[in-house]
Design a protein around this nucleic acid. Structure first.
Ligand code: FES
Ligand code: FES
Lengths: 148, 148
DNA sequence: CTTATTTAAGACATATTAGTCTTAATTAAA
DNA sequence: TTTAATTAAGACTAATATGTCTTAAATAAG
């Protein structure tokens, strides 16, 4: 296996959010169908992956013709950190690198120091990046959200 | 889910290695049975998890009474990095954070910079830590390798 | 009001990972 | 040389993650 920190479901939601923010202002709603086809993600799977974000007030959705999803919360105000905690759960950064229970609460494991450093850096980085920043950067630098 | 970078199998092998190195010199071989019971890991699963390490010359094993595993390569000369690449594969650190193919080779994704930074730090840390260091630290600071 | 379009929800199927069990091979000791 | 102990290997099962499909609900347009 290769290094991965997010589930497929979370990665799909993240890519869709990045796509959405990189073409906001174009129209009110963008359909999940369009996103799933552009990003080559299973439509139904993406639909489900995005639902926690609408439930938590990041996105709003509309059914029917011209429906889709759109930002409810301003993307300038949404950090990657917030998204990750919604998608993966509030305890995402509380894990032990060796899978032991209660990292930090009980006696630490031999790699506790390294792991805490890594987690701190990840949290700091993710907290400092807004979806708006990602959208702007993606457009300006022609960054990629899919294969091929 | 919570943040994890290794498979269960790799984590089990790592914990066993740390146990092994923290009580080397006590006897020639330590049985996988003892390790699996002490660390509360499935015996057969741990046996399989450790096999790549014997195949790659990190450990040696002996069957029969008083058998078990022991270090073939001096633990002072074995880095965590080396172990991880054996357990997870040589391409472990070549992944894209969004799961896209060919991180860095093709057009980067929007989080490429952050991800490269994280991967560099991980590689640097893992390369600088030897199993001997972990063993000594574990003994001296009474660090934990199991739950409870 | 009817129809087409779209998200929501959940049942279902498949793939991957994790874990168990059985048998074989090896080794040391009785 | 027989027996017990131990790793090796692989078949098998279980659990989880991933992906598909069907139906329902909502909405806009005709
Ligand atoms: S206890 Fe293992 S990383 Fe904190
Ligand atoms: S291209 Fe995505 S992290 Fe490098």
């Amino acid at each position: 296996m290769s290094l991965r920190i997010f589930s497929n479901s979370s990665v799909y939601a993240l890519r869709a959010l990045m796509y959405l923010v990189s073409r906001r202002e174009k129209q009110k709603y963008i359909s999940i169908k369009e996103m799933s086809e552009t990003l080559d993600i299973s439509f139904h799977f993406l639909t489900k992956a995005l639902q926690p974000l609408t439930h938590k007030g990041i996105l709003m959705s509309s059914r029917g013709p011209a429906g889709g999803v759109s930002f409810l919360k301003a993307p300038e105000e949404v950090t990657l950190m917030e998204i990750i905690l919604i998608l993966e759960g509030e305890d995402f950064f509380k894990s032990c690198m060796l899978g032991l229970e209660g990292c930090g609460h009980q006696r630490p494991c031999p790699v506790h120091g390294v792991w805490m450093d890594i987690k701190s850096i990840l949290m700091k980085e993710f907290s400092s990046i807004s979806l708006a920043m990602i959208g702007d950067k993606t457009v300006m630098q022609h960054l990629r959200l899919m294969n091929l």
